[in-house]
Design a protein around this nucleic acid. Sequence first.
DNA 1: CTGCAGGGGTAAA
DNA 2: TTTACCCCTGCA
Length: 289
Amino acid sequence: MKEQKIILKNIDSFVLQDIFECGQCFRWNLQEDGSYTGVFGENVLNVKQEKQDIIMEGLCKNDIKETIEEYFDLKRDYKQIKEKLAKIDENMEASIKYGQGIRLLNQDLWETILSFIISANNNIPRIRGIIERLSRTYGNEIIWREKKYYTFPSAEQLKDVTIKEYRDLGLGFRDKRLYETTQMIVNQKVDLEAMKKNSNTFELKEQLLTLSGIGPKVADCILLFSTLKRLEVFPIDVWVRRVMNDLYIQEPNENQVSKKQIERIATEKFGDLAGLAQQYLFYWRRETG
DNA sequence: CTGCAGGGGTAAA
DNA sequence: TTTACCCCTGCA
């Protein structure tokens, strides 16, 4: 672990608020100066934007350049993707204009699995609080610039945590789900390392669905927001249902619209970029009402 | 002040 | 296909 710094100049498609507030992550905190500080893996990082420059500094386990290239998905050409999606219709054009700085983070698979189990039927402030307490209680402490930070606890670190302890942490009915999923992963009923090498998206989703607390929506979020990075999946939550119905279906009661129907339209319109289209539409709709 | 709906769904009936 | 679910917040 050593203090490192990197400055990205003239980088395209990179806006802090878009990246950190678009719903894909829960551990990046807005600072008073407009920068964000977060913990991912063993790293603590502060990211700020000054004119055209993105300045990143913090404690990194490995080389900061490689670390952030991977985490912030810097090798992907978002400009090209956005141009392609914007041509589809005026809705996509508007949503991309709004969230033009979005990048889909490559987040640790294990952390993403637990985070999105916690997210089920929950609101963002509470999700963030739970994850913070979980890290503070069971993760490793890192001190940077005289402040304490905590890594997200590993499966091994959570292996002996009881359902009651989760409940006391404020997890509510998700206590059992966290416990069961952790046991399944520790006992290799689901092999995360094998999943990272699996190229079959359908198989990956099937495996995720065997874990407690993971249904179709959470599975898709994990496929999209973790290092698995499947851009073709299309997580459907209340906001996506709403925006898709308003734009493309116009059923008076949006709850009547089936997921199958939404998925079919998403695949037809957005193809293998459905996941990114979902993120632009979701962020646009949730932030602008 | 109390009551209640609803929130980035899932599991069980 | 429907319903309960832990906890917090906003609002009647």
